[in-house]
Design a protein around this nucleic acid. Structure first.
Lengths: 226, 226
DNA sequence: TCTTCTATTAAGGCACTGTTAAAGTTAGTT
DNA sequence: AACTAACTTTAACAGTGCCTTAATAGAAGA
C-alpha cells in the first residue's frame, strides 16, 4: 500500500486526513512544520506528499523548492487557502503536481491522490540476499549460485521470512504466525515439512547448507562463512 | 506552439479564454457543445483540452468518457462550478487530469496548462518492447516477430500494464485496479479470461511464451532469455 | 536404553487456474 | 430507434498442483 506524507500544521485537519487516508488503506505520517517535513522526506521515500503552503518556520513553497531540487518525480499536492491564487500559481510552476483549495471535501482529496498514484506505478524491486542465495520479492525469483530455483508460494514466503531474520533462531509458532498467518489452525508439523522442501531445493543440491536446525527451539538461516 | 481545444458554451467566457491563450502563444479552437467537441477531437489531435462540464446536448463528463475510451493521454482540464464536488470527483476518476473551479483567475488557468503540457513532454517512451514483442501506445499497434497482432481495447490495456511492469508478478487485484479501474466491481476471474485471450494472440502462435502464471499470486510478463 | 524431538514420505483433499460458451454491454450504422 | 457487430463479463466445469495430514523412521540428549 502506498505511503503518504501529510505536511500540515493544523493538528485537527492533519488528524482528519490521516484517519481518512488510513481508511483507504494508505500508510501515513504527519509533519507539523517545514523542517519536520524535510527531515521525513530525507529519511524515507514517499509515494506522495500532501503539502500545506502556510507553515510555521519554513513555508510550504520553500519545502517544495528544496524537494524538487533533488527529486522531480514524487507527486506533491499543495493545500492552499482559497484566495492565495499567487501561491498556487508559483507552487505549480515550482513543480507541484496539483493543489487543493481549503476548505475541501475529503472525497476530492482522495480522488486526486488516486489520479497521481495511478500516474506513478513504477516501483523498484526489493532484493534480499544471504551468501550466494538471493530472492527478489517483486518478481518472486530465487537463485542460488546464479541458478534459478523454483519455489511454491508457501515455500517462497517461508524463505523470505527466514532471510529477513537471518541468523535468528525462529520457533515453529513464530514461523506459523508469520508465514501461515496468526489464525492458522493445525499442527506445527507443516513447518518441518516445508523446511524439508526448502532444503531439497536450496541446500541439498549445493555444497553448503543455509538452513540449520536448532534442536528444541526451531530453525535458522545463516551463512556459515562469517 | 501547442494547440488547445476550448469546449465551453458560454460564448463570452470562451472568447476570453481564447484571447488569453492566444496572447500566450497557444493555437486554439472553440467548441460550443459536446457534439462539436467530439467532432473536433476526432478531426485532429490536440495537445490539451479545456472542457466545461455543463454543456448543452452532451455533458462534459460524457465527452470525457468517450474521449478517454480511445485516448488515455491527452491532458484534459475540466471547468466546473464551485459546488459540484461530485462532478469533479467523477471527472477525475473518469480520467481527467485536472479541474479548475469557476470563477477562476486566468493566471491560474495558464499555470495549470503549463503544468500539464510540461508533464506531457516527459513521456517519450510511447513505444514499449519486451523481446520480439512491441506495442505502440499512441497508435495502439502491437507486433510480435514483426507480425501485427490485433487486440481489443481491454486486451491492449492489460498488455501495456504487463509490459510496463515487466518481470514483476502482478496480482489479480492489482491488474483489476490498474486496467479495469479501482472502482470495478466484479470477480477477478475476468483477469484469467483476458490473460487467456492475450495468450492466444501473443503466445500460442509463437515458439516461446511471455506470459507466465505464478500460482497463488498472479501473472507476470517476462523475457526468459535473461 | 529410553525418551523426545526432528526428518521423511506419500496420499487425499482442496484451492487455484484454465477453458469455454453464453449472456450482457456498448458503439456504430442504417 | 432498432439493428448489428464487436467487445466484455459471468458462470460453470475440468484439470492440476499445492498444502496438509498422519504415520513411520531416524537422530540427539538424558
Amino acid at each position: 500500500m502506498p505511503n503518504i506524507l501529510i505536511v500540515e500544521d493544523e493538528q485537527k485537519l492533519a488528524r482528519v486526513l490521516q484517519l481518512e487516508l488510513g481508511y483507504e488503506g494508505y500508510q501515513t505520517m504527519i509533519a507539523n512544520n517545514g523542517n519536520d517535513a524535510l527531515v521525513n522526506i530525507k529519511a524515507q521515500s514517499w509515494d506522495l506528499i500532501l503539502l500545506d503552503i502556510l507553515l510555521p518556520q519554513l513555508s510550504g513553497l520553500e519545502v517544495l523548492r528544496r524537494v524538487r531540487n533533488k527529486d522531480k518525480t514524487t507527486p506533491i499536492i499543495l493545500l492552499t487557502a482559497r484566495d492565495e491564487v499567487h501561491d498556487k500559481v508559483s507552487g505549480l510552476d515550482l513543480g507541484a503536481n496539483d493543489y487543493i483549495t481549503k476548505p475541501f471535501q475529503i472525497e476530492e482529496v482522495l480522488a486526486r491522490i488516486r489520479v497521481h498514484l495511478r500516474n506513478m506505478s513504477v516501483q523498484p524491486s526489493e532484493q534480499l540476499s544471504v551468501g550466494d542465495l538471493s530472492a527478489n520479492i517483486q518478481t518472486r525469483e530465487v537463485t542460488r549460485e546464479g541458478q534459478s530455483v523454483e519455489l511454491t508460494p508457501r515455500e517462497f514466503d517461508l524463505l523470505i521470512y527466514l532471510m529477513k531474520n537471518e541468523n535468528q533462531v525462529l520457533q515453529r509458532d513464530q514461523l506459523i504466525e508469520h508465514v501461515w498467518g496468526y489464525d492458522y489452525v493445525g499442527d506445527t508439523n507443516v513447518v518441518d515439512v516445508y523446511i524439508r522442501y526448502l532444503r531439497q531445493k536450496i541446500d541439498t543440491p549445493f555444497a553448503t547448507s543455509y538452513i540449520h536446525t536448532v534442536r528444541g527451539v526451531g530453525y535458522s538461516l545463516k551463512d556459515k562463512k562469517l
